[in-house]
């Protein structure tokens, strides 16, 4: 299939507009979502407040840097629940019912279509809350991140989103073989909860798992370190390379899975 960027951009824009129009019909959800976002951010903040009320530093992290990690966690959770989860939950349902066949018939790449079917725009509140926490942490530090640090952070966050998305695509690909996958999606969300602390809090085997196997470190700790200016260039490049490799792997598995797809009815 030839690559047609303009075409795909238009499809994406239409899909986003549809989601926005749908969301606008349930405006009360905006308030509910806002309240929930505040509640969950407060919940995540609470142990840190108790902890740093007594201690100055934990595993080499002071309060403000730990707050940056928590802010990025909140932001990334917003991205996950707003832009990645809704579409991919929908596709798992379609695979189960057999409606996925129609997606395959459409004249566009199936992975692109299933990844952009639905968005939950109200989760933008989580993203703003996360950014707010980061901004507050930097006012506590009394300085602002430099342009280079900001650019590195944005690149790492993009890599983190790619990794999160790739994990999801792997789960969806698994749904071609094992039909009931929707609660595995919740499992991924539950594991992601561990990304709220700096990676150095985890010891031994757990740190290895959360760095290399389920790369939670890449999702919050490394971008936070980049923003604080404590991440080495080599580590940042390794993250970007790893994310690209992971993305390619997920794509390869997806293509393999599609080839083996036999529809729900056959």
């Amino acid at each position: 299939m030839t690559v047609r960027p303009g075409y795909y951009l238009r499809v994406l824009a239409v899909s986003m507009r549809t989601s926005l129009v749908t969301a606008m019909q349930y405006r009360a959800d905006f308030l509910v979502q806002g309240a929930m976002s505040l509640l969950w951010t407060g919940l995540a903040l609470f142990p840190l407040l108790v902890l740093y009320g007594d201690r100055d530093t934990v595993a080499g992290w002071d309060f403000a840097p730990a707050l940056v990690v928590l802010g990025l966690f909140t932001l990334m959770r917003g991205v996950l629940e707003g832009a990645i989860n809704p579409s991919l939950m929908a596709v798992i349902e379609r695979i189960r019912t057999g409606a996925f066949d129609y997606t395959l018939l459409k004249p566009a790449d199936a992975q692109f279509l299933v990844s952009t079917t639905r968005f939950a725009p109200w989760h933008v509140i989580d993203v703003l809350a996360g950014a707010g926490l980061v901004a507050y942490a930097f006012t506590r530090l009394g300085r602002a991140p430099g342009v280079a640090e900001l650019a590195a952070t944005l690149a790492l966050l993009a890599a983190a989103i790619a990794v999160m998305y790739s994990l999801w695509i792997l789960i969806v690909a698994a749904a071609f073989w094992v039909v009931r996958m929707d609660n595995l999606a919740f499992l991924l969300g539950a594991v992601f909860d561990a990304a709220r602390w700096p990676i150095h809090v985890f010891k031994g085997a757990w740190r290895f798992v959360f760095t290399f196997i389920i790369p939670l470190a890449l999702m919050t700790s490394y971008p936070a370190m980049a923003l604080l200016g404590t991440l080495t260039v080599e580590a940042a490049l390794a993250c970007l390379g790893g994310a690209a490799a992971f993305f390619a792997l997920a794509r390869a598995v997806w293509l393999l899975a599609i080839r083996n797809y036999t529809s729900a009815s056959s």
């Binding site: 142990p47 499992l187 709220r196 602390w197 010891k203």
Partner: peptide, 27 residues
């Protein structure tokens, strides 16, 4: 079983607090 496995929060909290108490007891 998968539902039960989603109960990760105590372990996430345990990771934080055991790292804290590694240096000295917390209260």
């Amino acid at each position: 079983v998968v539902w039960i496995l989603t109960t990760t929060m105590p372990l996430v909290m345990l990771a934080l607090w055991s790292s804290v108490a590694d240096e000295a007891p917390f209260r």
